[in-house]
Design a protein around this nucleic acid. Structure first.
Lengths: 332, 332
DNA sequence: AGCAGCGCGTGAAACGTTTCAGGATGCCTG
DNA sequence: CAGGCATCCTGAAACGTTTCACGCGCTGCT
């Protein structure tokens, strides 16, 4: 009935008497609007999608918190989807979101950019990349200067006297690649050598992945073993820490560790972790703001803010190496 | 068009030629079904809601993983909602889920059972309580025997010689209350005294809440200070640990800590945490299974499985107190 | 007193899908 | 060759909401 709709949406257009009567009826019947019907009629839904790489990584739950705050304030529901860094799961989630005709999608994509993302955009659905740089100027993206982050981490270790450094992180993700490049550049400039950096690529960016990489490092002959590691995220760093401790390798005395993201658990670790801090909640908030603008403003200008990370120094890297100012990464 | 619908839903009812033709057209136009229209017509949606107390608590993300696994296998999308232990946010989420006519809701409710939950059930929407006992026989619930969990934790500490024990957890949540009761019963039986147990109720079941309680404990005169704590969850335990370490209190020598949930980070803590393990993923899986049964089976029998927790002993409680077999909690 | 205009309520159409009755076509059988 | 039947497609109705045109009755102005 038209009047009911008016009572709910434009109560001022209904006489007080009728309004009252309708509201009583609504309360008595326990009537609740059917969102699907509203959506069907309106052509636009009141939901946005958020697709993350790993829901078990507190970094992403913090981002999600920022997303939910802003979305809720705008009256939007959030569908939180976990791709687990698998393209097929990501695609499946994107299909569902497409069928639901969500108003927009925030996504930290898996390694390769799925055609499903393009399909969404070509339908006119705004897509904002999260913690990932845009591939072109025609879309919004909220990113972090990961080359800088990598550089901060590496410079810190170099300053402490480390001359054989490991970078631990799978190679697929561009943001991880950027971190690696930052580390590599800093190490090259700091040591004059390209051999001072060893790269380890565990299968996943998880605690288990960290343990796996640490086991490899421990397996190296002492002379070629790195004395410190920059990890692609804090989960890896925690895994490395666990495995080192388990094998009696002292952190930071025998091996220094720097994580990335600065999740809350980094500070609570067996040895509190030095980490590269990103504005987690703010990333999420900002991403939704861009999404909302793109969805509502007809002459929306795409925007690609890049946040600056900072280094938070804690115990896991707080030792100065005996100062042999050897420049090349030779046998030590 | 009816034929298109048939091609998508009952392809065998369409001649191969037409089928082919329609599929080509679908691909060419990038046609994607409108889920809202399907839902409107069908009367039932293909979405379920999951409302958790704290998305930043890894316990709940592990539960969510179990939920997603089973839901995805059944072709259902999951709306993950975070109530942050606030009744108003929970109510808002439940309203949204009601408007979306979700097929069912899994919820770990805040302290008091919201009337919104009853409203949902009276509309015929199945609601399964998660990590929470049912209030009556007329609903499904997946719970853990938290009295047993509390008992396991307390017995362990008593066995190690502790005679003044703290329980740290806000009083509002029934599951926390049950843990407390288990601890209290064990302490009473083990010491013959009711004064051996002190309860601390931080504002939230978070790391910050743990720090808050630890500060209180540290503030007590040495003679009345507990020598160990059972925490209502692992986040609290981590907070307690941090604060103790910060104040130079040695764990476990000066103060033993037992957590609850056994999240992955418990093992990675500064001092690896003894914790009461719950089958996290399994809780989620089971909850969805019950939900699906209730939603589809006309003569569904409500079921209220209770899982048994186990104690995982780690370093945070691994010291035997000097064996003064004092029975009452006197000045020590 | 008559009419313009306003305030409010009514009813129908439309959103995109599924379902189902009905109709067209062609084949088989008697 | 006619009747019956199976196969496949077509068209209309329905889901619940919003929107919009319309119409009714009242107020106030001339």
């Amino acid at each position: 009935m038209g009047t009911v709709s008016n009572v709910l949406n434009r109560p001022e257009a209904v006489s007080p008497a009728t309004r009252e009567r309708v509201q009583t009826a609504i309360a008595a019947l326990g009537f609740v609007r059917n969102e699907s019907a509203r959506h069907l009629r309106a052509g636009r839904s009141r939901t946005i999608g958020l697709v993350v790489l790993d829901i078990a990584n507190p970094f992403f739950t913090d981002v999600a918190r920022g997303v939910e705050d802003v979305a809720a304030a705008a009256g939007l529901a959030v569908m939180l989807c976990n791709s687990d860094d698998r393209a097929d799961r990501e695609a499946a989630h994107l299909d569902v979101l497409t069928e639901q005709r969500v108003q927009g999608v925030l996504i930290t994509p898996t390694a390769e950019l799925s055609p499903h993302v393009e399909a969404l955009r070509s339908r006119g659905t705004p897509v904002v990349l999260l913690d990932r740089r845009a591939t072109g100027p025609d879309q919004c993206a909220v990113a972090v200067d990961d080359a800088l982050g990598g550089r901060l981490a590496a410079d810190h270790l170099l300053e402490r006297g480390h001359r054989r450094i490991a970078f631990i992180g799978s190679s697929g993700l561009p943001q991880v690649h950027e971190r690696h490049d930052g580390v590599a550049a800093a190490v090259r400039e700091g040591t004059g050598s390209t051999e001072a950096l060893t790269v380890f690529s565990p299968a996943h960016l998880t605690v288990a992945g960290g343990r796996e990489a640490a086991a490899q490092i421990i397996g190296l002959p002492a002379g070629r073993r790195p004395t410190a590691a920059v990890c692609a995220n804090d989960l890896i760093a925690l895994g490395v820490l666990q495995e080192m401790v388990r094998h009696g390798v002292r952190v930071p005395e025998d091996f220094a560790i720097v994580g990335y993201d600065d999740i809350d658990f980094a500070a609570a670790a067996a040895v509190p972790l030095t980490s590269v801090r990103k504005p987690r909640v703010e990333l999420g908030r900002r991403a939704v703001e861009l999404l909302l603008d793109e969805a509502s403003d007809p002459d929306h200008q795409h925007s690609q803010p890049v946040f600056e990370p900072t280094l938070v120094v804690r115990e896991s890297s707080m030792v100065r190496r005996p100062s042999r100012t050897v420049v090349s990464g030779g046998i030590g």
